[in-house]
Amino acid sequence: MTALKAHEVARYLARPDLSEGIFLAYGPDGGLVRETAQRLIRHLSGDDPASANVTIFDGPELTADPSQLVLEARSVSLFGGKRIIRVRNATKALVMPLTELRDDPGGTAIVLEADNLPPRATLRALVEAAKLGRALPCYPDTDETLMALMRETFNHAGIRTDQDVVPTLREILGNDREVTRRELEKLTLYAAATKSLTREDVLLLCADNGALAIDAILDATGGGHTEKLELALNRALAANVNPQQLLSMLTTHFANLRRWRTEVDGGKTPRSVLDAVKPKPHFSRIGGMEQQLRLWNETALGTASERLLQAVSDTRRRPALADAILRRTTLSLCMMAATF
C-alpha cells in the first residue's frame, strides 16, 4: 500500500517508481492536479515523448460505458511506444474497470485526475491499496512552496531578479498552481532577452492595473506628488474607473489617515500604527503612508475631509463634471501636502 503525502509528490514526480499501473492525481487545486498529471505523463513517455501512445478520456464519457477503459488498456498499440491513458474528471464509476486492471495493467499507465477525495472514497482507496497504484494528493500551495517554485523557475531560465520580485509576485497571485505557472511563463518570456526582472516588470505584467492606479492616486494625493498623481489619474480614468468611486476611496483614505494620526499624536510611531492596521497595506505602500502621517496634522486632515465630502456631493449633483471635479479636488489636496 502506497499513500504519498502532499509534500512528497514533487519528489515522486522527479523519479516515479512505476512505469505501469494506476496513478491518481486528486485534490482541491484543479490547476495543480492537471500539472501533476502532465508532469507524470511526460516522465512516463520516456526519452521520446512523440512515440508515446497517449489516449485521453473525459470522466462522463467513460461513465456511460466504463468498459471502454479496459478495451483501450488491453488494445495493442499500432505504432508501438508507451501506452498511456489519461482520464480527466475521474469518478467512482471507474472502480469496476480499474479493479479488473489493478493487478495486470498489461504495461499500460493509467493516469486519473479527480477532485478532492476523502480517505474512504472508493476510487482513492482502490488506488492506494493496489500494488501497481500510486495516489498523488494535490493541495493548495503554501507561501513557501509557491515562492520556491518562482525562484526555481527564474533560476532555471537564468533570469536575475531584484530582491522584491518574488515577494511582490506572491502578493499578486493566488494559490492556483495553473495560474501561477501561466504568469511565470509570461514573465520568463518577457525577460528572455534581458535575463533580468524588476518589481516594476511584475506590476506591469501581472497586477491589476486599475487597482494599482487607485493606490497610486491615494498615495500621490496624500504625499504631494503632482506628476505621479496626473499619471495615475490618466491611467485610472482610461481604465473606466468611476470618478465617484475614486472620490469615495479618497474620502476613506483621508479618514483613515485622520484616525491613525490621532494615535501618532498620542505617542506612537507611524510605523507601529501601520503595522497594527488590518488588513495590512501592501508592503510597497508602507513608506509612502508613513510620510503622509508625518505630513498631515489633525487640522489639515479635517480640511481635506471637508473638501472631499463636498466633491462627492458636487459629482452627485453634476455627474457630467465628475472627471473635472475629481482632478480639481485631488490636485488641490496634493498641493496642500506639497507645502507642508
Rank of each mutant, 00 (worst) to 15 (best):
L205E: 05
E128S: 09
D176V: 01
M336A: 14
R124F: 05
F57C: 04
R181C: 11
K228W: 04
R11N: 15
L101F: 04
N155K: 15
R316Q: 15
I325D: 04
R74V: 00
L187R: 02
Y190E: 00
A193E: 15
T226E: 13
A322N: 08
L257Y: 00
L169E: 01
R11T: 15
S45V: 02
T153N: 09
Q38I: 05
Y190K: 00
D48T: 15
L229V: 08
A236F: 07
D104F: 07
Y139S: 09
E8F: 10
L333F: 07
L293A: 08
L293Q: 07
L44F: 09
Q292F: 01
E200L: 09
V127L: 10
I214H: 08
L229H: 11
K228E: 13
A207D: 00
L173F: 05
T145K: 00
G224C: 05
L246N: 11
A192T: 12
D176I: 00
N89G: 09
T55K: 05
A193S: 15
R182M: 10
L301I: 04
L204M: 14
A213H: 01
L4D: 10
A192W: 02
L71K: 12
L331T: 14
E263F: 02
P49L: 11
A211P: 00
V76G: 10
S248H: 13
V277I: 11
